[in-house]
Simulated assay, not measured.
Amino acid sequence: MFYTGIVVEAYARLKSADFDPQPYAEFVETAGQPGLEIGCGDGNPLLALRRRGLDVEGVDSSADMLERCRHRAATLDLDVTLHHALMQELSLERRYRSIYLAGPTFNLLPDDQTAVRALRAIREHLTEDGTALIPLWVPGPTPADELGVAREAIGEDGALLRYTPVSEVHDTVSQTRTTTTRYERITPAEIEAVQREWILHWYSPDQFRVMCDEADLHVTSLVDDEDRPATATTTDYTVTVQRN
């Protein structure tokens, strides 16, 4: 997923919560190093893991997000290795004992074919004893009373940043949610505006297990957020996989 300009700034300022680094640190410590965070964005939780001394690299599809991450790392006096690549086109020299996505970034892949390509790329970047951690989400429709309602924040330079979900199509057949969003950056001199579509694609636990089989990955765990086996009605679940 590409981010540019005011979309990056608005995302960084308006995201509702930061990821707790503890579960990802524990995963890397247990599965082993080196680690790779896919979809590292501007460095959350990657930089927290680096501060703990963990050998973890990051990859993201957005050059602008990676530049923000480098700036944050420099501010914290941290060394960090970052890669610019699409998840499904990952081709790095190093192999990793632990690969993880922080949050349901995998849901940003638009269709099953792209998802299987990404799973195959993850497999190719695991060591023989490596493990990958993939959080997933089955999103419901955005509540109607939230469409057309703006959220605002102040940018680093004092500009007003505004995010508005304009409209949405929630398609249970294709298992996609497409939200048209408008980003604005407002200063006394000008108003910049970008409108784009966010596509989320979801899978049932059984569907995802089949895709892992197709990518030659063995599912070692598939659990909900209370560590219980995920069922057909589970909306938040985490999958761990290893090479077959």
Score class of each variant (00 low, 15 high):
221 S>P: 00
82 L>I: 09
31 A>W: 06
131 T>V: 15
236 D>E: 15
73 A>Y: 04
214 E>P: 07
116 V>G: 03
97 R>V: 10
40 C>K: 02
93 E>P: 02
178 T>V: 15
164 T>G: 04
222 L>T: 02
126 L>P: 09
187 T>V: 10
87 M>K: 05
94 R>G: 04
68 R>A: 02
91 S>G: 14
51 R>C: 04
185 R>T: 07
182 R>V: 05
46 L>C: 12
85 A>Q: 11
221 S>N: 14
92 L>F: 07
214 E>I: 13
117 R>L: 14
8 V>G: 04
51 R>P: 01
152 E>V: 07
27 F>D: 06
36 L>R: 05
16 S>V: 10
163 Y>C: 03
198 W>A: 13
228 R>Y: 09
149 V>K: 12
243 R>T: 15
130 G>F: 00
146 E>Q: 15
11 Y>L: 00
190 E>C: 01
200 L>P: 01
31 A>Q: 06
146 E>P: 04
35 G>S: 12
97 R>Q: 14
209 R>P: 09
40 C>N: 00
29 E>F: 02
233 T>A: 15
172 T>M: 13
174 S>Y: 09
234 T>Q: 10
22 Q>I: 14
103 G>Y: 06
85 A>H: 05
36 L>M: 08
93 E>H: 12
178 T>C: 09
176 T>W: 06
113 Q>N: 13
166 V>Y: 03
47 L>H: 11
64 D>Y: 01
170 H>Q: 06
151 R>L: 08
167 S>T: 14
135 P>A: 07
81 T>Y: 08
206 D>I: 10
217 L>V: 05
193 A>D: 11
83 H>V: 00
38 I>A: 10
99 I>A: 11
168 E>C: 04
132 A>F: 00
103 G>K: 02
47 L>I: 05
99 I>D: 07
170 H>L: 08
175 Q>N: 13
24 Y>V: 11
53 G>N: 11
227 D>W: 14
114 T>N: 02
124 E>N: 12
24 Y>S: 06
61 S>T: 02
157 D>K: 08
118 A>F: 13
165 P>S: 03
104 P>M: 11
102 A>E: 09
110 P>F: 12
